[in-house]
Amino acid sequence: MAKPPADLALARNRQISSITRQLIELIQRIWRTLSAATIADDLEGEAGAAIVAAVIAGQLTAAQGAQAFVAGAMAEQGASAVPEALLVAEAFSGVAPDGGPLETLLFLPAIGVQRRLAAGMTGQQAMIGGLADMARYTATSIADAGRSADQVGMAATRGCVAYMRVVTLPACSRCIILAGQTYSYSEGFLRHPNCDCQTLPLREAEWEAVQSPEQLYASMSEAERRRRFGVAGADAIDQGADMNQVVNARRGMDYAHIYGRRLQVTHEGATRRSVYGRSRDRAGDRFARFAGQRHGTATSNRYFRSTRTPRLMPEEILRISDDRDEQLRLLKRYGYIV
């Protein structure tokens, strides 16, 4: 029985990293034209619009590669690579990792710059910090769009039953202890801001195709071990302590109450103009007029948002249902596949 090479997941990681790197280089060029004194106006204007448009394009590109990635992994393992539904890449763009508006997330660096100025930093120092914030939000948005699309692609391919977490160094301690762990295809992906770990779609439940936490730790220099785990933590691990006891990996989520349960939702992509919004409009949903946000500024009341059916996030759909047919039905309903 063929095993999927970890190189497949690493290639997907390089693809996402390349998209992110090109975006950050573009953002750096734009950022150099901005001023700490006018940063809020700048990000509400043309500069902010250019950054948002670039990140949306990056998310779209990352999502577009998901179905081919899953199909390649299945083909390597001798499983059927034919999906039951086609992924809608546009459904994964324009949304922040927490399900909120991407525009709002990408305006936060302006607030960070203003806070640094208020704390006594120079304009240059404040802008360097703001650029670091923007790079972090951009990298997280691209990686999450790609991983979310990958997981929907796995759900749409019945041959895929699980995925393995592939960790590439440098990585933080929280990710290292999860290296090589295998999860059901529908189980949520543990991640943090700036996390670039990758999934490896699997036909079977257990594989040895990627490095374990212990193998990753052994390949690290002493300085890197101390940087990632802390001096005391690295010393404890060196003396035989359980790495999982040294590091406590956590993930945070935002939830809303819907259908009598706490579920992760988004209002992004829920307007009449969106894929999901058009489907709900045809289904007879009522839409309320509301003011949109354009680069941090409220617009006129020209948008219509569903008042009856919030849009579930893909990972939440996979979490609340164990039945693949029901998962596919919900993914179609909410516009992630067709």
Rank of each mutant, 00 (worst) to 15 (best):
K3T: 10
A11M: 08
I24L: 14
R32W: 03
L34M: 14
L43W: 00
G45M: 02
A47I: 03
A50N: 08
A53K: 07
A54I: 05
V55W: 00
A62N: 00
A63V: 12
A63S: 07
Q64C: 07
Q64F: 02
A66D: 08
F69W: 01
F69Y: 09
M74A: 07
A75K: 04
E76V: 11
S80F: 07
E84K: 14
A85R: 10
L87W: 00
E90D: 15
A91S: 09
L106P: 05
F107W: 09
Q114E: 12
R115M: 13
R116F: 05
R116S: 10
A119F: 03
G120C: 03
M121N: 11
M134L: 14
A135W: 01
A135L: 01
R136E: 10
D144K: 06
A145M: 02
R147Q: 05
D150S: 07
V152K: 04
C160S: 07
T168P: 00
A171K: 05
A171D: 00
L178T: 06
G180S: 00
T182V: 12
Y183I: 01
Y183E: 11
S184K: 14
Y185A: 04
S186Q: 11
G188V: 08
L190P: 10
R191K: 09
C195G: 06
D196E: 13
C197A: 06
L202S: 02
P213G: 03
M220T: 13
E222K: 15
R225P: 03
R226I: 12
G233D: 06
G233Y: 12
D235H: 05
G240C: 09
N248V: 14
G252I: 05
D254Y: 11
Y255P: 11
Y259G: 11
H267G: 15
H267M: 15
E268S: 15
G269Q: 00
S274K: 00
V275L: 11
A283R: 11
A288W: 13
Q293G: 15
S300T: 08
S300W: 11
R302G: 15
R305V: 14
R305L: 10
R311A: 09
M313F: 04
E315D: 09
I320L: 09
E326C: 04
R333V: 10
Y334V: 01
Y334N: 12
Y336D: 09
